[in-house]
Design a protein around this nucleic acid. Structure first.
Length: 421
RNA sequence: GCCGGGGUAGCCAAGUGGUAAGGCGGCUGUCUCGAAAACAGCUACGUGAAAGCGUGCAGGGGUUCGAAUCCCUUUCCCGGCGCCA
């Protein structure tokens, strides 16, 4: 949600954003309904004022023992009128809110204009693409040959896009998680394991309406939704709170499984564990002061980069174009890791600055002194590890001629100094 | 799951149908070389150029001319009982 004041005071800013994102949006209608809403507020406030005055008169007359039957009639009329007006106002307000909350976030000036990922800009490349003197396999063949993943039985038991992780791959998964948590803890993050299911109000604060149906699983007959990432639960953690300025920035390392419908992804990455309904993820989540959020955004990216440098996985950093940037984000970097089996860079990290967009929906504010005006915080998030995708990168990039997998040096200590799978 | 007690402003806390007590913390002013103390005003959200006005007593609904207060309902916290990895 954007600052409603923008609609009245700087509609051009919204207009520019809509043009950059090439989003269809009825801005005229929004401005109109905003105006109508204000008119109704003034009208109902006036009537309420009258009601309060009459109520006061009744109270005084009653105390004085005077007859109040006439004025009671008047009060009744005012009340009825007010009820009617409030109903109308409610409808206007609802219409306005629906429109207002569906405006996408502002977009940063550095984001390249474009309609899709074709216009994404490569801003950095790190590491040498590995060369092999033998015929390499993709992660599906590797994991099958080494008995590390069972996709067939998972399909039988749960369906497509599920997997049984087995043997040393389970240990590698845990090693990644433990390494990742230690890594972020050393950077000053608090480690948090959030609820894996959250209520609708919280989910709506962090997720844009369209994503709800496409991504989020709902629990039958409960007001509960399974998180698609710990970001959802982390964003809502401080909802309806006023945080003390000295406690900001708050830096959290969220660790949780992620559940995603992957609706609309039919046919893409159909095989293997690259695109699945469930995986583990460590997420960096930051509540920042507005003036620091762009600095924090770059820092988030650099921390994620450092992590993949330690693993020695080659990657490139992409700045997403306006068309590829999510509606709640003002600027997003993706890190794409080299995946030898696919001979391509594939997304493993997404790093976004959401400005005050989520905070406004979730009512997360801060202030430096008790009596200062409250301000909305800025929220930022970045993947550190989406485990299945990193496992794919490790399996494919670190495969050996004799069909094994070299374990990255930094993870060996987390696997009893094992060097190979 | 059952029984009981609770949820009032940044925090604490009074308030049994007639304009939301009080305290703490904070801000501004007076005073002062400066500060402290003392005193006064302000201290949430909306609307408005402003004065002001309105809203706000966990959320939703109802009764009433009028609800923090009475009724219904949802939710969370505390205590007890039950169940339980």
């Amino acid at each position: 949600m954007l600052d409603p004041k923008l609609i009245k005071e700087k509609p051009q800013v919204i207009q520019d954003m809509l043009k950059a994102r090439a989003v269809e949006f009825d801005l005229e209608g929004l401005i109109e309904s905003d105006q109508k809403r204000r008119e109704f507020i003034i009208k109902t406030d006036e009537l309420r004022k009258k009601k309060n005055q009459v109520a006061l008169t009744i109270s005084e007359k009653k105390k004085a023992g005077e007859d109040i039957s006439g004025i009671l009639e008047e009060m009744k009329k005012v009340s009825e009128e007010l009820t009617k007006l409030e109903l109308e106002q409610n409808n206007v307000e609802k219409k306005y809110l629906k429109l207002a909350s569906s405006i996408p976030n502002l977009i940063h000036e550095s984001v390249p204009i474009g309609k899709d990922d074709e216009s994404n800009k490569e801003v950095k490349k790190w590491g040498d693409i590995p060369e092999f003197d033998f015929k390499i396999k993709d992660h599906i063949d590797i994991s099958e040959d080494l008995d590390l993943v069972d996709l067939e039985r998972a399909a039988k038991v749960a369906g497509a896009r599920f997997y049984y992780l087995k043997n040393d791959l389970v240990r590698l998964n845990q090693a990644l998680i433990n390494f990742g948590l230690d890594f972020l803890r050393e950077k000053g993050y608090s480690v948090v394991q959030p609820p894996y299911m959250i209520n609708r109000e919280s989910m709506e604060g962090a997720v844009i309406a369209d994503d709800f149906e496409e991504v989020i699983y709902k629990i039958d007959n409960e007001d509960l939704y399974m998180i698609g990432t710990s970001e959802h639960a982390m964003a809502a953690m401080h909802s309806k709170e006023i945080i003390e300025g000295k406690d900001i920035p708050k830096k959290y390392a969220g660790i949780s499984p992620c559940f995603r419908k992957e609706a609309g992804a039919h046919g893409r990455d159909q095989k293997g564990i690259f695109r699945v309904h469930q995986f583990d993820k460590i997420e960096q989540f930051i509540f920042s002061k507005p003036e620091d959020s762009w600095k924090e955004h770059e820092k988030l990216l650099s921390i994620a980069e450092e992590f993949y440098q330690k693993l020695k996985i080659p990657y490139r950093v992409m700045l997403l174009s306006t068309g590829d940037t999510g509606n709640i984000s003002a600027k997003t970097y993706d890190i794409e890791a080299w995946m030898a089996g696919q001979n391509a860079y594939r997304e493993i990290v997404s790093c976004s600055n959401c400005l005050e967009y989520q905070a406004r929906r979730l009512k997360i504010r801060f202030r430096d002194k008790t009596n200062d005006d409250t301000q909305y915080v800025h929220t930022l998030n970045s993947t550190l590890i989406a485990t299945t995708r990193v496992l794919v990168a490790i399996m494919e990039n670190f495969q050996t001629k004799d069909g094994h997998i070299r374990i990255p040096e930094v993870l060996q200590g987390y696997m009893g100094n094992q060097k190979e799978i």
